[in-house]
Design a protein around this nucleic acid. Structure first.
Lengths: 123, 123
DNA sequence: AGATGATGTTTACAGATGTAAATGTTGCCG
DNA sequence: CGGCAACATTTACATCTGTAAACATCATCT
């Protein structure tokens, strides 16, 4: 079962710091997303059903912790896009951003560094 | 209005070659997707409503042509992912694939070439 | 002209999603 | 102990999606 976009917003909070209560999550994303309490609770329940988070009782409330690692999620999403749009290869994706002039100086510098590291690994 | 995944499959056919009839589209994706005729027709109608394709009468049938350019679509999707998962920057995305050992030799070679070109542009 | 077949158009229906409202539960306060 | 406040759980409901079935239209064959 895939995680929806709204659910991912909740996961993001938990990935930044867990465990958290529903209240804390609401405080963190409610204003920005314009969400009510019920919305966050529903999303948490759906995430529980999908086994993406875990709830541990703490007195009257629950503490929620991610079960799905951010890495896993990022991996799935990225691979999906790459496969659908760029034949599964990374270079065309970067070329795309390059053409769109969406590479910042920092990006370029980091890419250079990355390639250098790959070089070094080669022994 | 965003284009759904199933709709994007139809767009892909049209991006490869247009205009096309519903029948041709079905012939091209039906088998692989396990779709019936009605499915393709529905998707085409939704795409029409979203103004992502255009239909031009040709005797008894229609010829469909994309209105939305593939570049636009790719741009939206890529930017969406980048913003949601990598803070809008390209380098972390590439680093991610690098860590996952998902960079092919070809990818690396192409990235190198790309950086070199950017270098040259800088003159 | 009526039946047939090729096409397009409308309607359907289940599951996912966004967004809660309604309802249930329980520890605590008076 | 009875009721409220704080949580959680259940139910709701409109959209969007995937996937067609049903129905309408119209050129054509008999």
């Amino acid at each position: 079962m895939a995680i929806s976009e709204a659910e991912a917003v909740v996961m993001d909070v938990l990935w930044r710091d867990a465990p958290r209560t529903a209240e804390e999550i609401l405080a963190e994303v409610g204003p920005a997303q314009g969400w009510q309490e019920g919305t966050v609770k529903s999303l948490l329940n759906r995430l529980l059903k999908k086994e993406a988070v875990q709830a541990e009782r703490d007195g009257r409330r629950y503490l929620y912790t991610p079960l799905l690692a951010r890495e896993q999620y990022v991996q799935q999403e990225s691979k999906g896009l790459l496969d659908r749009l760029f034949g599964g290869r990374v270079a065309p994706l970067v070329a795309h951003f390059s053409e769109q002039r969406k590479l910042s100086k920092k990006d370029i510098a980091e890419l250079r560094k990355l390639l250098k590291e790959l070089d070094d690994e080669q022994h």
